[in-house]
């Protein structure tokens, strides 16, 4: 069995029938919808272990199981190429076929009986069908975002991938600070930044590095001054004058470490 991709026309059809398919999204399944027929999808070389996909942990209030599920999805799609992984039509097919129970638990407010058609349409667009938007795949597609979590940590070092995955996913902002800034991937700064987070995570996952000194005064409710952001800003500044690809990630980590006291105090000063 190959890898399935929804045809563009089938995706357009699914958009136009969201209201009619409402029950399938809220409590049903697309397994009998015929998405695998040649009129709705096409096959490419490779394989996907769909049995593994069925072992995804359903998120709870207390634990989204992001790291565990990233490993499961990465393993189920272990044979795909980056080219295939960047194709939203593939993720649309598998997210609809196998990701709905997970999506309902991960984003419960979007799958309520009183969810409006407009909100459901937005949800289907964001988490299942949106095409030609690589950032959406990294951020919102039900299965793609999990696969990419595991992909980037395996790119740094497969041996440390499980622990680095947990460091990467320590909070949503930390993940976004790396994965949603794709230009960082073009230099060793990305690897060095992740390795530095792993180092701090291993020391203590409640490390001050992951703290956000936050004012209890003022109207700002959003936490933005995480200490690790100062490290990433430092890397940005450094990369503006020095070609970081010439330096080894360990050399770059040493430079971050030298600057650490400065950015802790700078972050604290912003509070």
């Amino acid at each position: 069995m190959g890898i399935y991709f929804l045809k563009s026309e089938a995706i357009a059809g699914l958009y136009s029938t969201v209201e009619a398919d409402r029950d399938l999204y809220l409590k049903g399944s697309f397994s009998e919808y015929g998405l695998g027929s040649p009129l709705k999808s096409f096959e490419s070389s490779g394989s996907v272990n769909t049995q593994e996909l069925s072992t995804i942990h359903l998120p709870t209030k207390d634990d989204f199981y992001e790291a565990e599920n990233s490993e499961i999805v990465f393993s189920a799609f272990r044979d795909i190429t980056r080219y295939q992984a960047a194709d939203s039509r593939m993720w649309s097919y598998y997210s609809l076929m196998y990701g709905l129970p997970y999506a309902r638990k991960r984003y419960p407010t979007k799958f309520q009986a009183d969810t409006s058609v407009e909100d459901l349409l937005n949800c289907v667009d964001m988490h299942f069908l949106k095409s030609n938007d690589s950032r959406n795949l990294l951020r919102n597609n039900i299965l793609a975002r999990l696969w990419w979590n595991a992909r980037v940590v395996n790119d740094v070092d497969p041996r440390t991938a499980p622990e680095m995955l947990r460091a990467l996913l320590i909070n949503t902002d930390h993940r976004a600070s790396f994965i949603e800034r794709p230009t960082q991937f073009s230099t060793n700064a990305f690897q060095a930044g992740l390795l530095y987070s792993l180092k701090k995570f291993k020391e203590d996952n409640k490390n001050i590095y992951f703290d956000a000194p936050r004012s209890t005064k003022g109207a700002a409710k959003e936490v933005t001054h995480y200490n690790y952001r100062a490290a990433l800003a430092f890397l940005n500044r450094l990369g503006g004058t020095v070609n970081l690809n010439l330096l080894k990630p360990t050399e770059i980590m040493d430079l971050i470490a030298k600057d650490e006291d400065v950015f802790y105090s700078a972050a604290a000063a912003k509070v």
Binding site: R82, A86, P182, T187, N245, L246
Partner: peptide
């Protein structure tokens, strides 16, 4: 001095560089 040639694909996060 050296030349650093870098390739980067934003969609696949593939990057490679060589000196």
């Amino acid at each position: 001095l050296s030349l650093v040639v870098s390739f980067f694909c934003p969609k696949t996060l593939y990057s490679e560089s060589f000196v």
